[in-house]
Design a protein around this nucleic acid. Sequence first.
DNA 1: GTAATAGTGTCTTTAAGACACTATGTA
DNA 2: TACATAGTGTCTTAAAGACACTATTAC
Lengths: 261, 261
Amino acid sequence: MADKQLRELSDEEFLAAYDPEVFPRPSLAVDVVVVAVRAGRLCALLVRRGEQPQRGSWALPGGFVAMDEGLEAAARRVVATKGALRDLYLEQLYTFGDPGRDPRTRVVSVAYMALTDLARLEHAVEAVGDDRWVADLAVGWKGEHGGPVEAAGPDGTGLRLAFDHAQILGIAVQRLRGKLDYAPVGFEFLPKQFTLRQLQDIHEAVLGRPLNKDSFRRRMLAGGQLEATGAREGDVAYRPAELYRFARQAPKGGAIRRSDG
Amino acid sequence: MADKQLRELSDEEFLAAYDPEVFPRPSLAVDVVVVAVRAGRLCALLVRRGEQPQRGSWALPGGFVAMDEGLEAAARRVVATKGALRDLYLEQLYTFGDPGRDPRTRVVSVAYMALTDLARLEHAVEAVGDDRWVADLAVGWKGEHGGPVEAAGPDGTGLRLAFDHAQILGIAVQRLRGKLDYAPVGFEFLPKQFTLRQLQDIHEAVLGRPLNKDSFRRRMLAGGQLEATGAREGDVAYRPAELYRFARQAPKGGAIRRSDG
DNA sequence: GTAATAGTGTCTTTAAGACACTATGTA
DNA sequence: TACATAGTGTCTTAAAGACACTATTAC
């Protein structure tokens, strides 16, 4: 750039003269981990790659970011297009940019995590086609450090995952676990009304360990984010539990409680 | 892409024919928040912009990512080049990609956070030049939600921050606070040996609130990450405290403790 | 000795875990 | 009625907060 000359220009003049082609640029993509809980385990939406490279292996739904499109907007477009899902809870996870992570060219991918309840996810997958699969996640790292995660197909065997998507799944599970007990994310896996037992099942699935019933109930009710509906669950062969809904009110005095001192 | 034809190719043949210029691509940059603690407050390194656009305003040290350069490598290059700092603790923060966040062209920036002790930071800034400033951060959001953060210059008045860098600072402080009490990051702000009081001062500065001395001491010593050196601090007009060092051993039985149930 | 902070012992308080018990629906 | 799970009351346990007290160094 002609530095000395530019120093004399106003912002407007500078911008009119600016040539965006000066720097070579990596491709920019988004990949979305759409997570749900099924049968007490975490699962995620995968798409079978129908094109090169790594055709036939399973990938997270993803796509390139358009020039005038925001990152989150791109992620929402991707889940709407490839997953037929809208209005999900969506959160940016991490950006993967190792040279060589994609064999085509330098592709930097901003990974997002989306949460949904199982019914919506399975219904959407059914509508979209059979090159989609909701894969169970085999989460068993040493020491909670979020290494790569395996995904199991319909017959329970591992699926071949494309690119570095096993690692992205690992980061997603790690983030989810870390966030579960100080942010209202468990609700995202459930329909609008749910019982405390269902919520506990979600938490146990995400954390991968059993929780104390009494303590869980106390903590949830004390948190002030649950609202009893007065209604009760149906279709059960025992005493039906109260249905609650998530009250999106601000937590009174601290959802971020983590005392330090 | 000629889809039907590509389906017949092997990965190798496909890649040989792949044209990376098919999709237009945003520019990719990294910005680094270099954080330290000074006089009981958080502070960060800022660089005065000497070029358009927004010449004269203060920005985080940043730069474009080279085509064959990893993201973290780019961040390390930036702090080495613009801040004369090496071997810092570095962590990816968040990726900012709103169209229009940079008036030149679409620039997506991967933000990193680096932690260092004040002595290193101030020494490095002194060596590099006077268009660098270690600015105090005015952190006072409502409800810990990590909104934009103001930076104060030498005379205590606010600095004009470039682009969306006030927001990046906000995310950095939020992340740091959240991480402080379950990850060993407080040590990064201190020299190799330090007293428990110094460590507590760091925690209080990061969290922005006073901590209980007894509890803090108990918790730190119980954590198993501190190692007494046997040496004591000097140059104090009172009983000198024991010096500790950070023992990078794996936490025994759970640094990630956050019980949930 | 005094001043000032480091470091210890112990009581109180809070929240989780454990567990016995009661309540309420279906069959 | 039996059965299964929902929901409550209370004791125990672990850790934070509070605070009094002792220890050690400079002056």
